[in-house]
């Protein structure tokens, strides 16, 4: 309820109660942005090659992909094309590649730039040769220990996301939900997900990439898909019979 102050000015509840005492900005700068500094600003890399061209195979594939969409809707092919360009270029998108894709689809450059900077699936600076680790940091994964996975990445790869490891083989970043919440926590490397991780299991996954013998994607605790960990809890007879 509004109430009058001594001066007759009507004060609102918010001015006095809901907000609590005004807090000055006394937090040290380094702590203020909290976990936000993990989600790095997605911008083009300062070092860019002069040009980009699809390989003949990819160009033919792109032509087919564009033809899948009705006339006038070619711009719908922008994400598949950008992704293919990224794959061809060792996992990251260059500025000339954005223009090449835009020209192929008759799109304004800025529209393609918007898309490339929006989605975390597009990398705008070079990534690790052997693996670019995308650690999910959204709520279910975070509750199940994603922060410990980030610590592993910081220690083994680089203290900052989007930086190459010393040997250039690895890089990492934190991303939002990858849709594998039932098997949290998880990381994605290239097109595969590695689930039910602990720091130790993540080390094994990374070791696999380092040695050139990647571990099998999916759950790293051996459970099938997102079935209950430790075996079925209901319909046990059917499960037995199935075996």
């Amino acid at each position: 309820m509004p109430r009058s102050s001594a001066s007759g000015i009507v004060l609102r509840d918010r001015d006095n109660l809901a907000l609590g005492p005004y807090k000055g900005a006394a937090t040290p700068v380094s702590q203020r942005r909290g976990k936000h500094n993990l989600m790095a600003v997605r911008r083009l890399d300062p070092n860019q090659p002069a040009s980009f061209a699809f390989t003949p195979e990819n160009a033919a594939w792109a032509k087919e992909t564009i033809a899948k969409y009705p006339p006038g809707k070619q711009a719908s092919a922008v994400i598949p094309l950008l992704w293919r360009a990224q794959e061809q270029n060792g996992g990251w998108l260059t500025e000339p590649a954005l223009r090449v894709v835009a020209d192929m689809l008759g799109m304004a450059y800025i529209r393609v730039y918007e898309i490339a900077t929006f989605y975390t699936m597009f990398q705008l600076s070079p990534v690790g040769k052997k693996a670019h680790v995308q650690v999910c940091g959204t709520t279910p994964c975070m509750l199940r220990g994603a922060e410990a996975l980030v610590e592993v990445c910081k220690r083994r790869i680089h203290p900052e996301p989007h930086h190459l490891s010393k040997d250039g083989d690895f890089s990492w970043e934190e991303v939002e939900c990858m849709g594998t919440c039932a098997n949290a926590p998880m990381v994605q490397v290239w097109k595969d997900t590695y689930e039910d991780l602990t720091p130790e299991l993540l080390e094994k996954v990374l070791d696999g990439f380092a040695s050139g013998k990647p571990v099998k994607p999916g759950s790293q605790t051996g459970r099938q898909a997102s079935c209950p960990a430790g075996g079925p809890t209901t319909l046990k007879e059917f499960a037995k019979a199935g075996k």
Binding site: H36, M39, V41, R42, R43, A108, I110, Y113, E114, T117
Partner: peptide, 16 residues
């Protein structure tokens, strides 16, 4: 020519 790049807190209005 004008667009919004990035997302969330990092969204910025710019030209290419």
């Amino acid at each position: 020519e004008l667009g919004a790049i990035g997302r969330g807190e990092d969204m910025e209005i710019t030209t290419y």
